[in-house]
Nucleic acid binder design. Structure first.
Lengths: 195, 195
DNA sequence: CATCTAATTAGATAATAATCTAATTAGGAG
DNA sequence: CTCCTAATTAGATTATTATCTAATTAGATG
């Protein structure tokens, strides 16, 4: 999920009139005139808000005789409402990873592959170990931030010279997402599972 | 939940800088200077955004020697993210109620207590029946709208003359919420359960 | 107390956006 | 084709806000 879409969604719902419209449409489709009547606003104002809601796909419409009926796109709201808590769920994730590390397994693997100053000795060949190392590196990236390729390269290179391979592994493992040369962390639950 | 707080939350998260701050703080507390450095913004700008985040209680702070550490108030984000989907979940609720009515029980009770034109003959004495009737009336109110007492009275009176009793029952049953003489529907899941 | 660092406040600027009235477009219905 | 209703677009106004620089406040430390 691109962070801009998430922000756009929240911005859209950050207006009392639009929340009221959504709330009304939750009871079933309504014409523009009906909305204007209920909310005591003019038709152009309603039109303005509906177009904002349509921009983020929250509202769809259907023409019927003279009128246009607007209706909610339910899934979209569920989708975006979940996105933010999931995006920041890294904290819990970190605690889980802490637990795993405390249980010894992850910790040992990381110790084996990292130097004392945190650099990566070699890229593990074994899938599971490789993923543990990749997750560790990813945990040092900023969630929600968009990285240009050169910035990402510089970041990775502070751990290992073969940044190209690691960058590629981030994409393969669904750890990061790329669009037009811009990279961003995926939500944790999209990452490839270990085992 | 007051609709204004929900809107304020969404408005707060409708800014890419604030989402990034939240995302960073999800990894643990940070000082203001650190945030400014990571986001490449000036200290006053960070201060501005933090105060917005504090307004909706998403961020708390703690002074430590020379610096102030800001940290996430996790629960608040979960709370508000759930609020909007729940507020509009009336549609699903309506379908459930439809099912119950189709199953006969609710329908029969409503038929017994409502006249042909939808007015209420008497207020049921039995708790369960009373709640079914109250829910039916509440389902005709607009979710998310704030009602002045006189408007709410007028609405109720179109169904039964003893609006005062029914208005009180709305509060007792947690169906509505009152603040400074303004009434508003509560989210459905806060309503008192039948049985 | 004097000094340093971190944070906030004040004030300015530029951009965004909510709402209205007036004008325009798009479909029915006669 | 002409009229009617509903919706959108244009344009103006007003309010809000994200960001900056400069000034101020609040603690810590020597």
């Amino acid at each position: 999920m691109q962070i801009e879409k998430l922000v756009a969604f929240h911005k859209t719902m950050g207006d009392v009139t639009r929340v009221r419209i959504v709330s009304i449409l939750a009871n079933g489709p309504k014409r523009g005139q009906a909305l204007a009547g209920i909310l005591k606003l003019t038709a152009p104002t309603i039109s303005h808000h509906l177009s904002k809601l349509k921009e983020v796909n929250l509202v769809k419409d259907r023409r019927e005789k003279n009128s246009v009926y607007y209706f909610l796109n339910d899934d979209v709201l569920q989708h975006y409402s979940r996105a933010l808590p999931e995006m920041i769920s890294y904290k819990g994730e970190f605690n889980n990873m802490d637990k795993l590390q405390r249980s010894g397994e992850h910790k040992k693997i990381l110790e084996n592959f990292l130097t004392a100053d945190g650099r990566l000795k070699t890229i593990p060949a074994q899938r599971k170990k490789k993923l543990i190392v990749l997750y560790h590196l990813a945990s040092l990236l900023e969630r929600g931030r968009k990285y240009e390729e050169k910035d990402l390269n510089a970041f990775i290179q502070s751990f290992h010279d073969d940044y190209a391979t690691i960058r590629r592994e981030f994409i393969i493992g669904s750890i990061m997402y790329r669009e037009n040369g811009i990279y961003e962390l995926n939500p944790r639950e999209m990452w490839a599972a270990i085992e």
